[in-house]
Amino acid sequence: MSLVADLLDGDHRALARVITRIENRAPGYRDMVSELHTHTGDANVIGITGSPGAGKSTLVDKLTAAYRDAGQTVGVLAIDPSSPFTGGSVLGDRIRMQSTATDMDVFVRSMSARGRLGGLSTATADAVKALDAFGKDTIIIETVGAGQNEIDIVKTADTVAVLVPPGSGDDVQMLKAGIFEIGDLFVVNKADLSGADRTVTELREMIRTRSDYTTGDDQPPGRIEPSIEDQTNGWEPSVVETVAKTGEGVDTLIDELDEHLAHLDRSGKREQRTHRRFTEEIATHVREDLRRLSTTEIERKGGLDELASAVQARDTDPYTAVDELLEPIRTCVESRTDRN
């Protein structure tokens, strides 16, 4: 039996191996993901992001336990950074996920950035598909919220919760850039610490005044879909207080997450989001594949260095060099256009 067939049959090891293939971009991984695709679309995907030490893993642990109590099966993708120098990493999220240890209906997988640029969100999206096809009811993606890469990852989710630790006035300011726009709800974790009230107030304030700076017609279209939408969409992000360590507030958070998922279904937003996600996914693949094709062509022509030397010697210029490089692709595309 094939690995994919085993996965669909509920074999844990097959699921683990498929994710490894996906992560390694091992031969045949694309065919696997293609095969999996028809079996996906049933899971609720929740993204949890926030600054390091905000308590993401501990909260994910408690959420997982609560979903299990409700009879759901859960998949968790915990994404950690890797060293830009050695490529190595210590993936430390699993250590916090102890409430459901030995429960095989919880599948936790740690992933590292492996220094790839942008490719991680593709790998994450593919890994989500594997968990979805396996039959997980809820899939949680957990990642440090620190930039475009993470935003791309989290966009794989239906619902995004942003964790904000108390007393992080400056962090809240930082959140404006990027992460703030993608939060469907906000969680002030470690709510038993002093300063929690203030952070809650600040967040509420920000949500209320959001239109001042986050929405507007001059916003670059399609880049990041702001969840913080105007009234017509009928969703105002709530702010939930939790103490992940003790589990306080986790039930409220689950209610809010469910509420948002229900809102997505009611308003038709889920369909829209999914559609947009696939649009972007296809665009990404096209870009990546073209890049790979052009790299092959460049190497066939002696590599970039050779071209650069020619340009440097004034034998040619950058535009002409590129035109010559891309000639085969252009010819192919144009001849097809003629046919139509």
């Binding site: 060293s83 190595g88 210590v90 993936l91 699993r94 250590i95 102890q98 740690s110 590292s112 492996r114």
Partner: peptide
């Protein structure tokens, strides 16, 4: 980790 491996520590 420094050798470039991905390490998961169990606790």
């Amino acid at each position: 980790r420094d050798a470039g491996f991905e390490v998961i520590y169990s606790g």
